[in-house]
C-alpha cells in the first residue's frame, strides 16, 4: 500500500512538472494577445486537460506502462523512472527550457528497464521514436493547410466586430482543444509507468494524471509561458490559431494511437508551417538543431540518469 502511495506521489510530481512546462504551449496565443487573462486561461485549460486525460488518456498510459517493457518491473525502478524524468523536467522548467516530457519519460522507463534486465519491446521504442520525427513534420503540413482554410473563412467576414468575434471564438476553441490533446497525450507521461504494475485501473490513473497536470498548470505554468508565449504571439491571430490547431490535431491523433509525443517540438513544426505560407523561410537552423538534439539528448540523458540511479540504489 505504501509503495502504491509512493508511486502515485511520484506520478503526481511528474504530472505537475508537465503542467508547469507545457501550459505555455496551450495558452501562449490567447494570453499573449490579451484576449483572456492568464488566470482565466489556466482554469479553462485545467478543465480540458482533465477531460482529455479522463476520456482519451488510457492508450498512451498503456503504451508507456506495458508497451515499452513487456514484463512487470520492481516498484523502486518505476519510482526512479518517474523521479528521474520529473527531476530532469523540473530543472528544464526552472531554466525556462521547453523540453519534452514524453521523451524524458520514455528514456527513463527504457533506462530503468535496461538496468533491471527486463525485456524491452525495441520495435515499440523505435515506433515511438519514428513518431517523434513525424510529429513536427505533420504539424507543419497541417498548419500550412489550416492557415489557408482559416484565412479564407476570415476573409468572408466583412464587418469588423463580427471578425473580432470570429477570432475570439477561434482562440478559445484552439486553446481548449490543445489542452484536451495535452491531457490525452501527457497523462501517460505522468502515470504511465505505474500502469506496468497493474495495481491501479487505467481509468483512475488517467484521472490522476490529468489532475496532476492541471495542478502544475495552475501553480507553476506562468514561468515557461513568458518565453514560449512571446514567440507564438508574434504571429497574428489567424496564423497563431492555425499553428496551434495543427498541434492539437496531431497530438490528439497520436493520443488515439497511444504514442507519447512532444508538444514543444510540434509547436516548432506548426510555426514553420504557417511561416511558409507567407513565403518566409521561417526555418531557423538553430531550432532544427535543437530539435534533433532533443530527440537524442533528452531520452538519452533521462535513460542514463534512471539506469545509473537504479544501479546505485539496487
Amino acid at each position: 500500500m505504501s509503495s502504491v502511495i509512493l508511486l502515485v506521489a511520484a506520478g503526481i510530481y511528474v504530472g505537475w512538472n508537465i503542467g508547469a512546462n507545457d501550459t505555455a504551449n496551450c495558452i501562449g496565443t490567447a494570453v499573449g494577445s490579451g484576449l483572456i487573462s492568464y488566470s482565466k486561461a489556466v482554469i479553462l485549460i485545467a478543465i480540458f486537460i482533465i477531460l482529455g486525460a479522463s476520456i482519451q488518456g488510457e492508450r498512451v498510459i498503456e503504451t508507456i506502462g506495458k508497451g515499452i517493457v513487456t514484463e512487470v518491473i520492481p516498484v523502486p525502478a518505476i519510482i526512479i523512472a518517474l523521479l528521474s524524468a520529473g527531476a530532469f523536467v523540473t530543472i528544464a522548467t526552472y531554466l525556462k527550457l521547453p523540453v519534452s516530457t514524453s521523451q524524458a519519460i520514455v528514456g527513463g522507463v527504457t533506462g530503468v528497464s535496461l538496468s533491471v534486465g527486463a525485456n524491452i519491446a525495441w520495435n515499440e521504442v523505435l515506433s515511438i521514436i519514428l513518431c517523434w520525427i513525424i510529429n513536427p513534420i505533420a504539424t507543419l503540413v497541417i498548419a500550412y493547410g489550416l492557415y489557408h482554410i482559416l484565412n479564407a473563412l476570415a476573409r468572408k467576414v466583412k464587418r469588423i466586430r463580427v471578425w473580432e468575434r470570429f477570432i475570439t471564438v477561434l482562440l478559445v476553441v484552439t486553446i481548449s482543444y490543445m489542452a484536451y490533446s495535452l491531457g490525452a497525450n501527457h497523462a501517460g507521461n505522468a502515470v504511465g509507468p505505474i500502469a506496468n504494475l497493474g495495481v491501479i485501473k487505467l481509468r483512475w490513473l488517467a484521472i490522476i494524471g490529468g489532475l496532476s497536470i492541471a495542478l502544475g498548470s495552475i501553480t507553476y505554468g506562468h514561468r515557461v509561458s513568458e518565453t514560449v508565449g512571446k514567440s507564438i504571439t508574434l504571429l497574428d491571430p489567424i496564423t497563431a490559431c492555425a499553428a496551434q490547431l495543427s498541434i492539437a490535431i496531431v497530438v490528439h491523433m497520436f493520443s488515439i494511437l497511444g504514442i507519447p509525443v512532444s508538444t514543444s517540438q510540434a509547436i516548432v513544426g506548426g510555426v514553420i508551417g504557417v511561416g511558409l505560407v507567407r513565403g518566409v523561410t521561417a526555418i531557423n537552423r538553430s531550432i532544427i538543431i535543437k530539435i534533433i538534439i532533443g530527440w537524442i539528448a533528452t531520452p538519452l540523458i533521462s535513460a542514463i540518469i534512471a539506469f545509473s540511479i537504479y544501479k546505485i540504489v539496487a
Binding site: S33, G34, L35, E164, I167, T168, D236, P237
Partner: peptide, 8 residues
Amino acid sequence: GGAFLPFL
C-alpha cells in the same frame, strides 16, 4: 480597459 484584441 480591455476593448478589442490587444494587437489592434
